[in-house]
């Protein structure tokens, strides 16, 4: 088990009270697994990722336990996390294009970065060059300033930086969302390549684009309004989802070959609840076509089949009958 998260609860502190952005997340990511994390904006996927690596104010750690390779991560302690950050757990941030120091040449910046982790730059240079080849960047970029690179090139450079120390877990936060289809494909395939070449052991890919996950992920975790809704292997999530939210989400995606005149897709009516004072029980209740009395209680996230976790009372009921 590479990553184990147990009952992780993280709130945002505001003047009006706590915004309950992540409520009791429990899941595991196996070695060599690429897990996709999907959901609408504001569902807590970035909060989950950041709480694993850099839990800063206004985020507040409430409770939970995170272990990586059988070692507990002190996610609530910024100082102690320094030993793990970048070495054991690394992130490709959402705005990777603005992540580099504009006043340093990229090679120089990389050198400083490595020195801060007490790693010799000279010794890692051959490996760095090999990784640049992997993402199809010329070695000349090390002598350039970030401004001389295009957005896509900067993105790939940041990807190389984040895997430089062979982290056990790599988090890719919305790395494909600002790109067009052909670069999207290239970047997504690079993530798979990183895993295959052993640059990182497991990957969490955060995106709102489920079709990308279908291409590269081994498993998909769906979140809604701060709660986990469903986790299963990619094929199960796409072809036979159980949670009503997952079903609606998948059916609302336009595909090639679908025209509105022939098959009119429907969105999900309503909008997600505010997390400042969220409804008790299942937070999808108000938009759910299957909601019933039981839904005022919060559904647990239970394994209904092997490797298939769902949090929905209706599904539990159906399973009990079957």
């Amino acid at each position: 088990m590479s990553l184990q998260v147990e009952n992780l609860r993280v709130y945002y502190q505001t003047l009006k009270g706590d915004v309950r952005a992540l409520e009791g997340a429990t899941f595991t990511v196996a070695d060599r697994e690429i897990m996709g994390l999907a959901g609408e904006s504001g569902c807590g996927k970035t909060t989950l990722a950041h709480s694993l690596i850099r839990l800063t104010l206004p985020m507040r750690f409430v409770e939970g336990r995170v272990t990586l390779d059988n070692e507990e991560l002190p996610v609530w302690d910024m100082e102690r996390m320094n030993d793990f950050r970048f070495k054991e757990i690394s992130i490709i941030p959402q705005y990777a294009m603005n992540a580099m120091n504009p006043t340093r040449k990229i090679g120089k910046m990389t050198e400083e970065l490595l020195r801060s982790r007490k790693v010799d730059f000279r010794a890692s240079l051959p490996e760095l060059k090999r990784r640049l080849d992997l993402v199809k960047l010329s070695h000349d970029v090390l002598d350039m300033y970030p401004i001389e690179l295009s957005g896509g090139m900067k993105q790939r450079m940041v990807m190389v930086l984040s895997i430089l120390l062979n982290p056990s877990l790599l988090i890719a936060d919305e790395v494909t969302s600002a790109l067009d289809v052909s670069s999207q494909k290239a970047v997504a395939e690079m993530l798979v390549e990183f895993r295959n070449q052993g640059c990182c052991k497991s990957v969490i890919v955060i995106t709102h684009d489920i079709s990308i996950l279908y291409q590269i992920a081994d498993s998909i975790l769906i979140m809604y309004a701060g709660q986990l809704a469903e986790k299963a292997s990619t094929d199960v999530i796409i072809n036979s989802p159980r949670h009503p939210y997952t079903k609606l989400l998948i059916s609302s995606l336009p595909e090639i070959g679908v025209k509105y005149a022939e098959k009119r897709l429907t969105g999900i009516p309503g909008s997600p609840p505010l997390l400042l004072d969220p409804p008790i029980g299942c937070r999808f209740r108000d938009r759910c076509p299957l909601a019933f009395d039981k839904c005022v209680e919060e559904p647990p996230f239970i394994e209904i089949e092997k490797d298939h976790f769902v949090a929905c009372w209706k599904v539990f009921e159906e399973n009990a009958q079957a």
Partner: peptide, 22 residues
């Protein structure tokens, strides 16, 4: 054709067409 091949789809995985994107 290349654009069509790169579109992430829910019914088909990306074919192993390696497109030179430089």
């Amino acid at each position: 054709k290349m654009l069509m091949a790169s579109v992430p789809r829910l019914d088909k995985k990306w074919e192993e067409v390696e497109v030179e994107l430089k």
